[in-house]
């Protein structure tokens, strides 16, 4: 097993990586079923399930009625009684219709019953802005669910991770909520062949640096990396951490980075107030890494308004690469 460099790395889109993960899981385990609206012959609103219905049939790739609450609850009940459902919300926004089953049932059944049962449920949430679909189809609601003990909430940012994390979610005995940014679906990247898992609850350092720690989630990881490249040209060496999991959050990777750089910028698309960045910031401020902070912590999050329709407005309400560059410069150069 000597080291070798593959001549060409296989690339898949993010959506294809999800489909490959589901395909692998369904081929390996009859208990794995897909449920969601228009995921059968239509292939899913974002063509994520694609042609899986032809391979596994309508018994395992199940079009639900437009009944988010009922459908989500059926998935909870099925998970409780021996199946491994993967439930797709057509848009993460529609989870609002199913919050009862997610928050009051799936997240709590195990605890309420003193550990007598587990809910091995995977839910997928196409989320985020950038599609011009406006306020009810563009939200990033991961912090809502991240607030609920009993759930695990992940935001894979790459094709490789989304495949590995979906398979890890299926191995997990507890409910795992996967937030998939819709703009990432077409992003291509290296995806290893075959079965592998990417751990839930572990952040990834996407770029090592010494001057500032940028902790980003989902699509913001890519914007942060682009910002870091620009900043490198100006002599600022930014470390970019892909948080990957909102709950349980990887404290140690973030803290080690902050101890090293002394500066923290959080970048996330969800509304800034009470969002994921608020949790990261507070976690750092409460830790021993506080003593290493050499500048105020900065959060870049979604604006305090619904996502608007007009494309320029839509861009303006979520952090963009120049915003990150500017914020990092302010922090590193002691302007704030």
């Amino acid at each position: 097993m000597n080291a070798h460099t593959p001549t060409a790395l296989r690339e898949l889109s993010y959506a294809e990586a999800i489909r490959e993960a589901m395909d692998l899981a369904m081929a390996a385990d009859d208990r794995v079923i897909l449920m969601g609206e228009d995921i059968g012959v239509y292939g899913g609103a974002f063509q994520v399930t694609g042609d899986l219905v032809h391979k596994y049939g309508t018994d395992r790739v199940m079009d639900t009625p437009i009944s988010e609450l009922g459908g989500a609850g059926v998935a909870v009940g099925a998970a409780l009684t021996g199946l491994r459902p993967i439930f797709e919300f057509q848009f993460s926004d529609f989870a609002a219709l199913a919050m009862e089953q997610i928050v009051n049932q799936a997240a709590k059944v195990r605890y309420m019953l003193g550990g007598a049962v587990s809910v091995p449920l995977v839910m997928r949430f196409p989320s985020g802005s950038g599609t011009g679909a406006a306020a009810q189809h563009s939200q990033s609601l991961e912090a809502w669910l991240g607030h609920v003990p009993g759930l695990k909430v992940v935001q894979p940012s790459t094709p490789e991770d989304v495949k590995g994390m979906l398979l890890a979610a299926l191995e997990d005995p507890d409910p795992v909520m996967i937030f998939e940014h819709k703009i990432l679906y077409k992003m291509k990247g290296h995806v290893p062949e075959g079965y592998y898992t990417t751990p839930i609850g572990k952040a990834a350092i996407r770029r090592a640096g010494k001057d500032v720690s940028i902790v980003a989630t989902s699509i913001m990881v890519h914007k942060a990396l682009a910002a870091a490249e620009q900043l490198a040209g100006e002599g600022i060496d930014a470390e970019v951490i892909d948080l990957r999991t909102v709950r349980p959050m990887d404290h140690e990777t973030v803290l080690a980075s902050v101890r090293k750089t002394g500066r923290l910028v959080c970048v996330y698309e969800g509304v800034k107030t009470l969002g994921v960045g608020a949790e990261i910031s507070a976690m750092v401020a409460e830790s021993d890494a506080f003593d290493f902070l050499d500048a105020p912590i900065v959060r870049l999050g979604g604006a305090e308004c619904p996502v608007p329709y007009n494309p320029e407005l839509e861009k303006a309400v979520v952090p963009q690469t120049p915003d990150i560059v500017e914020a990092v410069k302010n922090v590193v150069k002691g302007r704030i």
Partner: peptide, 12 residues
């Protein structure tokens, strides 16, 4: 009067 501005890192 009571304190002065210094970052946590400076203080530590």
């Amino acid at each position: 009067g009571e304190g002065f501005r210094a970052t946590p890192r400076a203080r530590s």
